[in-house]
């Protein structure tokens, strides 16, 4: 199902904030928008204890998990050292103010 879905208008994701895409068939995807309007999509589950990353505080291109403060890189889905672990990243792009998303992960979850 690697098709692009027009998911939401860019302006409807708060800057340095997130939106949750809840997919009928699987786990939620979290969309983030950085200060320079780059958008990231990762599985909404922290590699630590599945905390909802969408609810964390975003800074730069990373997010801090709300449950126990792991820091996750949004581009790769990996936790910053010294923590170890990774969550899936999904293909996402912005065209004419629209955010397009694929529901098949771009990376396999490593840990």
């Amino acid at each position: 199902m690697s098709q692009w879905i027009e998911i939401v208008a860019l302006e409807n994701i708060p800057v340095l904030g997130s939106r949750v895409v809840s997919v009928d068939s699987g786990t939620d995807i979290a969309l983030f928008r950085s200060t320079d309007d780059a958008v990231f999509a990762i599985r909404d589950a922290c590699p630590h204890k599945q905390g909802p990353l969408s609810q964390g505080i975003m800074h730069g291109t990373s997010v801090t998990c709300p449950l126990h403060n792991w820091k996750i890189d949004l581009a790769s889905g990996s936790a910053f050292a010294p923590d170890e672990g990774c969550t899936n990243v999904f293909p996402v792009k912005v065209e004419q103010g629209k955010v397009l998303l694929q529901l098949e992960p771009a990376t396999e979850k490593v840990a």
């Binding site: 879905i5 998911i7 939106r19």
Partner: peptide, 9 residues
């Protein structure tokens, strides 16, 4: 408000 997507996308 979550963005809801069906299994078919």
């Amino acid at each position: 408000a979550p963005i809801k997507v069906s299994a078919l996308g």
